[in-house]
Computed example of a mutant assay.
Amino acid sequence: MKDFKKLNEYLSNLAVLNVKLHNLHWNVVGKQFVQIHEYTESIYNDFFEKYDEVAELMKIRDAKPLAKLSAYLENATISELDQDKFSTDEVLEIVKADLTKMKELATEIRNAADEAGDFEAVAVFEDHVAGYSKNLWFIKSMLL
C-alpha cells in the first residue's frame, strides 16, 4: 500500500473511538448496565490493540502514523459525544453505527491492500472486518 491517508483515517477513528467508548462505558444507565458496561470495555480494549497494530503496520512500511489528538480529531470520520448519560439501547445504537462505519472503512482498506498486493495488510484488515461483523451480530441480538 502506498496511500496511507485511509490508514491514518482509520487510526484516527480508533483513537476517537477509544475515548468515545470510555464515555459510553462510564455513563451507561439502565437495567442492562453491567452487561453493556462490560461489553463496551471489551470493545475499547480490542480497539486499542487494533490502534497499535495499524500504527505498527504503517511504520513497517516507512509511513508516518498520526500521533497527536488534534490530528486524530482532524482526520477522524467518527465523531465525539457531548452527552454524559446514555440508556443501554442508546449505547448499542451508537456503537452499532460506529462499528458499521469502521467495517466499511476496514473493507475499503483491505480491498486497496489486495489490489496493491500487500498481503500482510490484507490479513490484518480481514481480521478487523471479521471482528466488526461478529460485534454487529452481538449488538443486533442484544437490541431484539
Rank of each mutant, 00 (worst) to 15 (best):
D84I: 06
E93A: 13
N111F: 01
S79D: 12
K101C: 08
I109S: 14
A121N: 14
F119L: 14
K64Y: 07
I94M: 07
E74K: 08
K96P: 02
A76W: 01
A97N: 08
A106L: 02
E120S: 15
M102H: 02
L69A: 12
E115V: 01
E115M: 12
L66S: 11
A112G: 13
K101V: 03
I60L: 14
L73T: 03
L99C: 07
F86Y: 10
F119D: 14
D118A: 11
D82V: 02
D89H: 07
A97F: 01
L92R: 08
R110F: 03
D89F: 00
V124K: 13
E115A: 14
E90D: 15
D118Q: 10
P65L: 07
F119A: 14
K101H: 05
P65V: 03
A112L: 13
R110K: 13
D84Q: 08
E74C: 05
L73S: 06
K96F: 02
K101M: 10
K85G: 08
F86C: 08
Y72S: 15
D98Q: 04
I94L: 10
A123N: 14
T107H: 08
L92Q: 07
V95A: 09
V122E: 08
I78V: 15
A113F: 04
A116G: 12
D98I: 00
T107R: 11
A113S: 15
I94W: 01
A123M: 07
V95N: 06
A112F: 02
Q83T: 07
K68C: 04
K85A: 10
T100M: 03
A121L: 10
D84H: 11
E104G: 04
L105A: 03
A63E: 15
I60W: 03
R110L: 07
N75V: 00
A76I: 01
L69C: 06
V124M: 12
E126Q: 12
S70K: 13
E126H: 05
L105K: 05
A113Q: 06
Q83N: 11
L99S: 04
E120A: 15
E93T: 01
S79M: 06
D114E: 15
D89R: 09
K101E: 12
A113K: 06
V124Q: 14
L73A: 10
E115I: 00
S70A: 13
D62Q: 12
S79N: 13
I78G: 07
T77P: 09
L69F: 06
A97L: 04
R110D: 02
I78F: 06
V95I: 13
A63N: 15
S87Y: 01
F125C: 10
K96R: 09
K103T: 03
E74G: 06
K96H: 01
A112V: 00
G117C: 11
N75R: 12
K68N: 12
D118C: 12
A67S: 14
D118F: 00
A67I: 01
E90K: 03
F86G: 09
K68T: 09
S87E: 14
A112N: 13
A121D: 06
K85Y: 02
I78C: 07
V91R: 13
A76G: 07
P65Y: 04
R110P: 03
I60E: 12
T77A: 08
N75E: 15
L73I: 05
A106M: 02
L73E: 10
D62A: 12
K103E: 09
K103I: 00
F119Y: 09
I109R: 11
I94R: 04
T88A: 14
T88C: 15
T88M: 07
K103D: 05
